[in-house]
Amino acid sequence: MNQQTPQSRRVGLFVTCLVDLFRPSIGFASVKLLEDAGYTVDVPMAQTCCGQPAYNSGDREDTIAIARKTIETFEDYDYIVAPSGSCAGMLKKHYPALFKDGDWAERAKAFSAKVYELTSFLTDVAGVDHVDVVHPGSVTYHDSCSGLRELGIREQPRKLLRSVGGLEIKEMPESDVCCGFGGTFCVKYPDISNRIVEDKTDSIRQSGAKTLLAGDLGCLMNMAGKLQRQGSDVEVRHVAEVLAGMCDTPAIGRRKD
């Protein structure tokens, strides 16, 4: 059994390309949550993207090349954690399917067994059942598709959110329905994507919550962009920001006045 202390367990943080480029705060919030749980966190500089844009566009060759790079970069860590259900799903569920057999198949399998999405890692692996932070107000939680259906993440973020001081969860109707982001889908089929996200922002409004949370920045940017275009004052944040008590940065799509 696991005889090591958490401190001796090293987590490689897979930052995700969107967090790296658009919202570093989520990365720092993730680091804080993991360190608070007692893990040593490292961020290897050789990471780029999980490869989904290529994978979902049918470009298998580039996907495999990117997957190999990612595996090489991360396979020595005890755990690989990503603040995204979608990227974690790619690393955990899809990488092993890219390699038929042989050495790489073995490496991909061993690698994927150590991959987790952030909130599920905290509750299911690290055994975290509460966070010592306060976030007064109501939030609603959108279940991003890959996290929900590929990794079974639903209760984990809510469990942690319920431990946040002053926070009230107001569920929206159909929180498990896609927001219409879909990676390249939203730019390839913008009109359809728009109808889907309109339905989503309707649901968000129906919840009456002040803040919208989710575990995937892609979905969050899509929903935040729509809410702001509609003139809504709902704040949009990644769940890690609230759990880490790091909400001093402006919400997604907002600037300090």
Partner: peptide, 30 residues
């Protein structure tokens, strides 16, 4: 904090705003 329109991202900004990057990348900050 966001873009109303953005070159090459018309598919996105036709219907929604595009959140702007916070500043530097996470990797730079890290």
């Amino acid at each position: 904090g966001r873009f109303k329109s953005l070159p090459l991202a018309g598919g996105w900004t036709r219907h929604r705003d595009m959140p702007a990057p916070e500043g530097r990348t996470f990797m730079q900050e890290w």
